[in-house]
Write a protein that binds this DNA or RNA. Structure first.
Length: 105
DNA sequence: GTCGTGACTAGCC
DNA sequence: CGGCTAGCCACGA
């Protein structure tokens, strides 16, 4: 694995249950706000699937985005986390939107 | 070292 | 509002 991916997974683990974050926020948290593509790539290649709550990461606007195990499975997990999903989009996304600690300047 | 792909995002038609 | 294109970063061949 690479250092970049490790940072991504670490950031995902910071996401509490019942909350969700976006690829942009994760990318920003690791120090590359423009690397949201790489963030999704790291999640997809995550060797710590159940260890890393990649299912708590969604696209911008609260869209589910995608999931390696199947988009349906991701939605199911989110619902179990008390996160409502409607037509591939998070309900009350803003209320469940988790923001990483501004460890940067 | 170069080309292509991907769980993305923003802009344009 | 919906679909398509271009740009971005990192990884694999």
């Amino acid at each position: 694995m690479t250092l970049f991916q490790e940072k991504v997974w670490k950031a995902l683990q910071e996401i509490p249950r019942g909350k969700v974050s976006t690829y942009q926020d994760v990318a920003k948290a690791i120090g590359s706000p423009q690397a949201y593509r790489a963030v999704g790539h790291a999640c997809n290649q995550n060797p710590f699937a159940p260890r890393v709550p990649c299912h708590r990461v969604v696209a911008s606007g609260g869209k589910i985005g995608g999931f390696a195990n199947g988009l349906r499975a991701k939605i199911k997990i989110l619902q179990q986390e008390n996160v409502r999903v409607k037509n591939g989009q998070i309900v009350d996304f803003e209320s469940k939107h988790f923001i990483f600690k501004p460890t940067k300047k």
